[in-house]
Amino acid sequence: MLIQTEVGRAEVVAKQLAGLPGVLSAEYVTGPYDVVARIGANTMAELHDGVAAQVQQVTGITRTLTCPIADGAAP
């Protein structure tokens, strides 16, 4: 998940996200996004309605972009 935050809030937001269920890692970065979080769930519905929804409620987040990983492994 790519996250934009209010100015000066990236480090605080990353630390808050790291403690949420379903957040596997959260790092603050430079560039067009302020935080990159790796999130996980058993289903896409759980990812969207559970984990992503919780992340979006963190104070200081202004915008998120969820980018599900496409598994390229052939059966």
Rank of each mutant, 00 (worst) to 15 (best):
G19H: 04
L47D: 03
E6M: 12
R63T: 10
Q16D: 13
P68T: 03
A41W: 01
N42H: 09
G19I: 04
G72D: 11
A53L: 12
Q4P: 05
V7H: 10
E11K: 13
A10G: 08
S25R: 05
A37M: 05
E27P: 00
E27T: 11
T43S: 09
T59D: 15
V36K: 02
G31T: 00
Q57C: 05
E6H: 12
A74W: 10
V7Y: 10
L65Y: 12
L17A: 09
M44G: 11
G19T: 07
K15N: 12
K15M: 09
A14M: 06
Q16A: 14
A14Q: 04
D34P: 05
A14L: 06
Q56K: 14
V29T: 14
Q4Y: 07
I69F: 08
V23F: 02
V23W: 02
T62Q: 13
T62K: 14
L24V: 15
E46I: 03
N42K: 11
L2F: 13
N42G: 12
A45G: 10
T30V: 09
V13E: 06
V55W: 02
Y33E: 06
P75C: 03
V35K: 01
D49Y: 12
Q57K: 15
V29H: 07
G22S: 00
E11M: 09
A70G: 11
A70F: 15
G60I: 10
M44C: 07
G60S: 08
V36D: 05
V58R: 05
V12L: 13
R63W: 08
L2P: 07
T59L: 11
G19V: 03
P75H: 06
G8D: 08
V55M: 03
G72T: 14
E46P: 05
A53S: 15
V36E: 04
R9V: 06
E27C: 02
V58I: 14
A26Q: 01
A52S: 08
T62Y: 07
